[in-house]
Every structure is written in C-alpha cells, then in structure tokens.
Design a protein around this nucleic acid. Structure first.
Lengths: 263, 263
DNA sequence: ATATCCCTTTCCGCTGAACGGAAGCAGCCT
DNA sequence: AGGCTGCTTCCGTTCAGCGGAAAGGGATAT
C-alpha cells in the first residue's frame, strides 16, 4: 500500500513489523511476492526476513508455500489487553443470554472504536463489526456513547477531523453530532439506525471506571426491531454496572494500555 | 528464562521477537530492566528496540512507563487462524445455550492442545483453560479425542515424549493411555475427571474435515455433575456436525496453518 | 539537605549483520 | 521446447545496529 519502499535508514525492526502488519487489512495469506509488494520491501529481503519470522512462529507457510500469520502470534496477542476482555466476557455472555441479541464490547482506540468482544449465535444478523475490527465512532452506538462521555479534549480533537460516512444515514455534521452527544450524555445511552450498515440498528451504554468511560457495551438488532430496542436498556445498564464492579479492582493502567488519542 | 544472551550472530529480528514473546508467559507488564532480563538482551539494546516497537504499536508503555503488549498486536493476531474460529463461534454459542455448560473448542499445536475459543457465563466453574492457552493432550478430553483420531505417526511421535501430570488422576502410563485412545476411537468421544484440575470433569467429541480431525469440541462441568455429563453427547455431536458442515467450504490450508507436529 | 540506590535514557565509535541486485531454479502454461 | 512467473541462493559492500559507559531522574533512607 504505502509506496515508501527501500530508502536507506529503514530499520530491520520496521521491516519485520511491516511484514507482519501487512496482514492487518484482512488478507488471509499472500505469496512471497505479494507480501513483498504489500510491505514495500525488496523480494530478497522479504525472503530472508520471512524465513526467520516463520522459524520463530510469527508467520507460517501453508502447504502451497503461501505466507500467513502464525497461530503463535494469535496466542501472544491474547495476552494484550486481557484484563478487560477476560473480566467482561462472562457478563457479555449473560447479556446475550438475557436479550438474545448480538452483544458486543468496544473501546476507543485513537479516533475509532475497536471491538474487543462480540457474542452472537447462529441466528445472526448481517455482521457489522468483527472482533479485533475497527469502525468510525460517529457511525456506531458504542462509538457515540464513548465519545459522549469522554473528556472534553478528546471530543474537541475528534471534531477537528473529517468524519466518515459509511451509509447515507450516518451523521457527519459536526454541530449536529455535538448536539446528539449532549443528548446521549443526558439520557445515558446512544442508538444508531442504519448508520453503519443498512438493515441493522444498535443501542449502547457506557462502562465507567472511576468516573471515566473505558468502554461501550452494546446490542445490535435488525432495523425492523429497532422500535423495541429500548426495552433492553435496563438489562444493558445492569450488565454494565456488573462489569464496572468486576473491573473495579483492576489497576487503571492495566485496563487501558496507552492513553494516546492517536496511535 | 533462556540464558543465551548476546552471543554475536543473533539477528535483530530474533531480538525484536524475543521482546514480544517475553510476554508469552502471561506477565501483564514489565519494567524495561525486567524485560531485558526476560528477553536475554542488554539493557541499551532493549531500550532502543522497545522504543521502535512502541512507536509501531507492537508494544505499549503504561503511564508508569512499564512495558506491555500493544493492543494493535492483539488486533493483528485476530487475523491469524480466523477461518475456524469465526466460523465455529456461533455454533459454540449454541452449544453453550443448549447445555448451559462452559463450552470450548481446541486444536492441536505441536504436542499440546491450544484453546481457540471458550464460552461461559458468570456462573462459571473454576477456570481450567484460557483462550489462547495450552494444556497437555493427555490431561484433557479435547486433547485425548484429537489424539485418538489423529494419524498414526502423530500418536507414535507423541508417545516418545514424557507425559505431563497436572493432577494425580492424569493418565501418564503410555500403554494405558494408548488403550484408552482405542476406546475413545470406538465410542467417538473422550472424557476426563479431575485430570487437569480437581473439581472439574469434561467431555469432548472430534470435529472432522475430510476424514481428518481438525479440532476437539468439549464441555467442562463440575465433578459433581460428571455422572450426567453423557446426556450432552447428542448435543455435542450435533454441533460438531454443524461445524463440520460450516467449515466444509474452507480450504484445508486456511484452516490449519502449518502442518508441523512440533513448533 | 544530602547520600544512596535503582532504573531509565542518551552517547558514540567500531564492526559484522543486513542488504538487495543478479543469477540460478523450478514449475507451469502455451 | 521455449517462455514466463515466482521462489531461492549467492556474495561483496556498507551503514544500521551494537552495547559499554556515563549521565539523568526519582524515590527512599540517613
């Protein structure tokens, strides 16, 4: 993607990471040449580094010789940000059991929401989010609720950027969005209707930790059921309170890695 | 842990990965010195490399300056081995809803079972496995059922090694274990009782893909309920069949990364 | 106030690990 | 058989990486 290829001064580390993060876009596997292209590296350099990354389990080669991420990397990744995920999971499960709707938990990462966990059964609705996936904050209920309760400077910084618009219903007018956030803060929850994807609606409440939002807890429903979505509000609030209680003993720095607004 | 520190010939890549994989043991965060120690690297080298890894999001520093894994690494890791995990998850959810017991899905990685996913609610029993965690094959129902249906050479190779024994009830006699595997193959499921941890029992069935086991699907229950565990067998088999159907279209190489026995 | 300790960060000149173009291979299609 | 495409190996040059040492920072003891 980025063109800046082999200008000298590029560190080995940056090259090795470029090879790994080349899979961020979601491609399952790539041929060596494709990977070299994606990482912006010469083929022979790619070849040498990939060999070592494979040897150490960060990458793997499938039977056809194509390169993919190593399962050991997934394993390692499970150790990042575990505290919130592991603690919240059973409560998220309860939320799903109680409502029967797709339930998810998200945090803010930079100017986007990052989906930490998601529970749904086979009677699933079209997938809007994906565990480990990101979406714009202005288009999702979890995103809006987090933004609404964030500190002022975060919100201010957010409005200086261009707002994305996945569907025609997504609010991208800063003034109106700001107004909506005030209302969300007053009522204590956020909703969306077809703002990420046509056909689905969502509702979300904040999860606090010592007065600060640390996450958004939400449900996704079919647009046709959007009307009755509010009846899940007490359940959402109850589960959120339980998560808050369960995470109360965890040191804040363990809960929210870095504090930066941008990554 | 490993002492081999700064002998020349060590590549930068190996050092960078050593810093990342130093978190494999489960430590949430480390000071720079601790990390240097754990990775077996000189402090200044650690300092330089950590700075770059942090810059690129593979590592992060908490407000106290301690080093932890970056959330971006978790994100990236979600792309590894996604096919099986994402496909099976809703069925695993169904399994939990139908049985009300902790449900999990595991694959074989080398000579251990790796827990791919796990669903449980707040009425949870003591945690035996952890998503992204490994356990010995001879001590778990999922492990035994995978081993029982694996190809002969895998089983042969497995028996050449020393078998671990987490509790006094774990079978470590190779001959007896081999006999048990024959029985498991005949009956089509495996069970354990207090073989990983006192107080819990489990049952598991295989998940096939073109005649080969690709995973084990299991339930964990309290030892006191072990007697009635078998009544979940039809459900387990039904869900396993559904997962098999859902994964049928996925190319095998996508499902099971590398084919190696050892990593 | 000052010393002591422990950890982190910066400096800098030497050196061999990393580099990558080019050549050699291997499979596949025409 | 010839051409094509993508993977792997080679090897002489050079600059990124190295890490010991010294300086900075911050907490706690004296």
């Amino acid at each position: 993607m980025a063109g800046g290829s082999n200008e000298p001064g590029r560190t080995v580390t940056s090259k090795a990471l470029a090879l790994l993060f080349a899979f961020e876009n979601g491609r399952r596997s790539m041929s060596l040449s494709e990977l070299a292209e994606a990482a912006g590296l010469p083929l022979s350099t790619t070849h040498r580094l990939v060999a070592e990354l494979v040897e150490r389990g960060a990458l793997a080669r499938d039977p056809q010789g194509r390169v993919q991420l190593g399962i050991r990397l997934w394993e390692l990744g499970q150790n990042a940000g575990r505290a919130l995920r592991d603690t919240a999971r059973p409560y998220l499960q309860d939320l799903f059991s109680l409502t029967g709707q797709t339930a998810h938990l998200a945090i803010r990462e930079g100017h986007e929401v990052l989906y930490i966990d998601r529970i749904y059964s086979t009677k699933r609705i079209p997938r809007v989010s994906r565990v480990g996936g990101r979406l714009p904050m202005n288009a999702t209920a979890v995103g809006k609720v987090i933004l609404a309760f964030e500190e002022d400077w975060v919100r201010d910084a957010y409005f200086t950027r261009h707002l994305e618009q996945p569907t025609a219903f997504t609010q991208i007018n800063p003034a109106r969005l700001a107004g909506e956030l005030v209302q969300i803060r007053e009522q204590g929850y956020a909703t969306t209707a077809e703002e990420v994807r046509l056909g689905s609606a969502s509702i979300a409440v904040p999860v606090f930790r010592m007065g600060r939002v640390v996450a958004g807890l939400g449900l996704v429903v079919l647009s046709s059921q959007a009307g009755s979505m509010l009846r899940h509000l007490p359940t959402l609030r109850g589960i959120s309170a339980q998560i808050e209680r369960a995470t109360a003993h965890i040191p804040l720095e363990t809960l929210r890695g870095s504090e930066g607004l941008w990554r």
